[in-house]
Design a protein around this nucleic acid. Sequence first.
DNA 1: AGTGATTGACTACGTTTGTAGTCTTGGTGT
DNA 2: ACACCAAGACTACAAACGTAGTCAATCACT
Lengths: 125, 125
Amino acid sequence: MSKQITKAEFQVMDALWAQSPLAATDVAERLANDTGWSLKTVKTLLSRLVEKGAVSHTTEGRRFLYSPKVTRDSYARRATQRLADQLFEGRAAPLVAHLAESKGLSKDDLQELAVLIEELKRDSN
Amino acid sequence: MSKQITKAEFQVMDALWAQSPLAATDVAERLANDTGWSLKTVKTLLSRLVEKGAVSHTTEGRRFLYSPKVTRDSYARRATQRLADQLFEGRAAPLVAHLAESKGLSKDDLQELAVLIEELKRDSN
DNA sequence: AGTGATTGACTACGTTTGTAGTCTTGGTGT
DNA sequence: ACACCAAGACTACAAACGTAGTCAATCACT
């Protein structure tokens, strides 16, 4: 029943999604630049992620190697779903509309979306 | 720089977005069904929202009438933006793809999206 | 005018989060 | 063999959150 992953924890996940398994030290190293977190902080976050069931570890000698148990993809799917449900009753169109307004989707983006939608339409037959 | 609106606070906002201005009692009444929160809880949340700058109040006699200072639309825009930035480098296409996969966009949804995208394309010229 | 209900202000309190620090133990290098 | 260091376990602690409770003022009614 993997609980909520917080903002800070997400950054740790992202490091692990970029590469895994990793030891705590390595995760900390990769995050140091963006976050300035101490190794201790990263270890705490890793532990909490393990508790929450989002990360697993295997023992390698005296150290732990951490791996995500949830794929970035499935995490993204759930997060997107939650946002859509909360804000747009699960509808995609208004969500895209908002994206378009706020970000100014590029022509390429629009093209890509058009193609994607064509595909989805075809698949739904 | 109105701070983060939490999940519980969001529900209060949603009540105010549905109708405003409202007195605390009325907000509580509207939320009672979904949340079971006591009036006290709702009042606390309203106060916090005022502190955070998301809600304003005017005095009407001895009671407050609360109104959202942020529109649901602009809140949605920012939330969507944040999600897209965090998960998809701001790109809409993968976001829609995830929605499609997780929710199974209906044919109508797809049609609506296609139309929307045509519009956006036209606008971007 | 007195009493009770209602309102916002302030306080409370356990949990989660962000961000570490201390303790213990098991390798490492000499 | 031993001193040291790095790894995880456990502890810390303030701020934010979820969810109320208490208090003082005030309005509404008898």
